[in-house]
Amino acid sequence: MTLAATAAHAALAAHPAPSGFLSPTGVEIAFLLVGIATLGAALVTVTTKQLVHAALWLVVALGGLAVEYLLLTAEFIAWVQVLIYVGSVVVLLLFGLMLTRAPIGRSPDADSGNRWAALGVAVAAAGALVWVVVDAFRTTWIDLDGPAQGSTEATGSFLFRHWVLPFEALSVLLLAALVGAIVLSRKRGKEQS
C-alpha cells in the first residue's frame, strides 16, 4: 500500500506545481511519516491472527489519525478522536472480545475463506481510488497558514451558531442508541418466559 502511495507521489513529482513537490515542507514530511505509521497499524489490525492485538493496533491507527487532524489544524476534532475512539470505542471492542470469549493466543481461523477475493477487491478499489484522487487533486494545495480553523473557539462558534438543530437531533439519536443497546443486551426477564 505504501508502495502505491510512493508511486503516486512519484507520478505527482513529474508535474511541477507552484509550491514545488520535491521540496516538501516540514508539515508534509510529518504528515507522511505519521500516515505511514497509521496505515501500517491499520494493515496489522486487519491481518493479525490475535484478536486482542487487533484491538490494540486499532488504538495506534486511531491515535495516528488524531495526530493527522492536529497537523491539519483541526485541534478540537483531534481531541474528540482521542476521547471517543481511543477512550471508549476500543474499550467497548475489548469488552466485546472478552464477553464473546475470544481466544487469547493465535486463532488460525480469524480470516474466512474468501480472503483472496477480498484482497483482490481491496487492491482494485485502492488502485482506482488513488489514481482518481491523485489525478483530480495534483495541483491543489491546502493553505495551513493563519489562525487554526478547527480550534475549540472556532468549533464552538460554528457548532452552536449554525449546527444547533442537527446537534440536538444527534443527542436524541444517542439516547435511542443507549436504550436500544440496553434492551438488546439485557437477559430476558421472568415476564417473558
Binding site: 500500500m1 497537523l71 491523485v134 491546502i142 495551513l144
Partner: peptide
C-alpha cells in the same frame, strides 16, 4: 500542504 497526502491516505485506509 498538498491535498493529495490526506486524500491518498484516506483512500488507502478505506480500502
Amino acid at each position: 500542504m498538498h491535498l493529495a497526502y490526506p486524500a491518498v491516505l484516506a483512500a488507502l485506509l478505506f480500502c
